Computed example of a mutant assay.
Amino acid sequence: MVENLRKTGQANISAGADQARIFNLDKYWKKFESQHEVLLNKFKDELKKHDYATFSSLVEEEYMSQRSTLVDFATRLTGEPKNSSASTQPQQSNSRASLPRIQLPMFSGNYEDWPSFRDLFKSLIDQDASISKVEKLHYLKASLKGEANLLIKTLSITAENYKQAWNTLSGLYENKRALIRSCLTKFTSIPKAKAKSASELQRIFHGMISTSSSLDAIGRPIGQHED
């Protein structure tokens, strides 16, 4: 947290940027404490033989050191005392706080669903610098089911495996020919109208619009290609 804040440059180290990092740091620490309690309750005897106790102590010391430095930054930037709630609690805008939580997309391995899943997952998770690679891989695994899940199911959740997992999925589903075939197969499998009604015409029309949008998403718009 501290190093990343310094990398932004002195001119960009604002009270808001500092408080945002304090917020994230506290969030990660609470998550660590929660998992720490789970481990102690389930594996108390096993942990006595493991170097986990040393590791958890190091994490706590690192957290205290990082938070202390960030609070010092806040004190210098705002002129408020260190125990001020303003230096420890990030302020969220009313508009952001009132928005509903965005649910992660789910992907089961259908080719036509890959472009929308890819773009949304990258926007919500992959491009968020505040999320570690371990967490990104956890979110990725939690967002997969069916055949897609089987592709990376055996990968352990480590920082190094996140890139491998994403490349594995991209290598299979970033197949332009397969994506086009999937879109057109879905379109030609739309059931015929059962009656001369506006609802049946609307159903077929929506199927056509969905296919057109899917082809646009993979760079093969119907007005510019022969697919």
Rank of each mutant, 00 (worst) to 15 (best):
L58M: 14
L58E: 15
L58Q: 14
E60P: 00
E61P: 00
E61R: 14
E62G: 12
Y63I: 10
S65K: 14
R67F: 11
S68W: 00
T69I: 15
L70F: 08
L70Q: 08
V71F: 01
V71L: 14
V71M: 07
D72W: 01
F73R: 12
A74G: 15
L77P: 10
L77S: 08
T78Y: 05
T78D: 11
E80Y: 06
E80F: 06
P81H: 04
P81I: 09
N83Q: 15
S85R: 08
A86M: 03
S87M: 07
T88V: 12
Q89H: 04
P90S: 06
P90D: 05
P90G: 06
P90N: 05
P90W: 01
Q91G: 05
Q92C: 03
Q92F: 14
S93R: 02
N94M: 09
N94D: 13
S95A: 15
A97D: 00
A97F: 06
S98H: 06
P100R: 08
P100Q: 08
R101V: 13
I102V: 15
Q103M: 06
Q103Y: 01
Q103A: 12
P105Q: 02
F107N: 12
S108R: 06
S108G: 14
G109D: 07
G109T: 01
G109V: 04
N110D: 08
N110A: 11
N110L: 02
E112R: 12
D113V: 05
W114L: 09
P115E: 03
P115H: 07
S116T: 13
S116I: 11
S116M: 04
D119V: 08
D119N: 13
L120D: 01
K122H: 11
K122W: 00
S123K: 09
S123E: 01
L124D: 02
I125M: 06
I125V: 15
D126M: 05
D126Q: 08
D126E: 12
Q127R: 12
Q127L: 09
A129L: 04
A129K: 07
I131W: 00
K133G: 07
K133I: 00
K133Y: 10
K133W: 04
E135P: 00
K136I: 07
L137N: 03
L137P: 03
H138D: 07
Y139T: 06
Y139A: 14
L140K: 04
L140D: 04
K141L: 01
S143L: 03
L144Q: 10
K145I: 07
G146D: 09
A148Q: 03
A148I: 06
N149C: 06
L150A: 15
L151P: 05
K153C: 07
T154H: 14
T154F: 02
T154A: 15
T154C: 08
L155V: 12
L155Y: 14
S156K: 14
T158P: 10
N161S: 09
Y162F: 15
Y162Q: 10
K163R: 12
Q164E: 13
Q164D: 12
W166N: 07
W166T: 13
N167F: 10
N167S: 13
T168H: 03
S170W: 02
S170Q: 14
L172Y: 09
L172R: 14
L172A: 05
Y173C: 03
N175M: 04
N175R: 03
K176P: 00
K176F: 00
K176D: 12
R177W: 04
R177N: 12
I180P: 07
I180N: 06
S182T: 09
C183V: 15
C183Y: 05
L184W: 01
T185M: 11
T185I: 09
T185A: 11
F187W: 13
F187P: 02
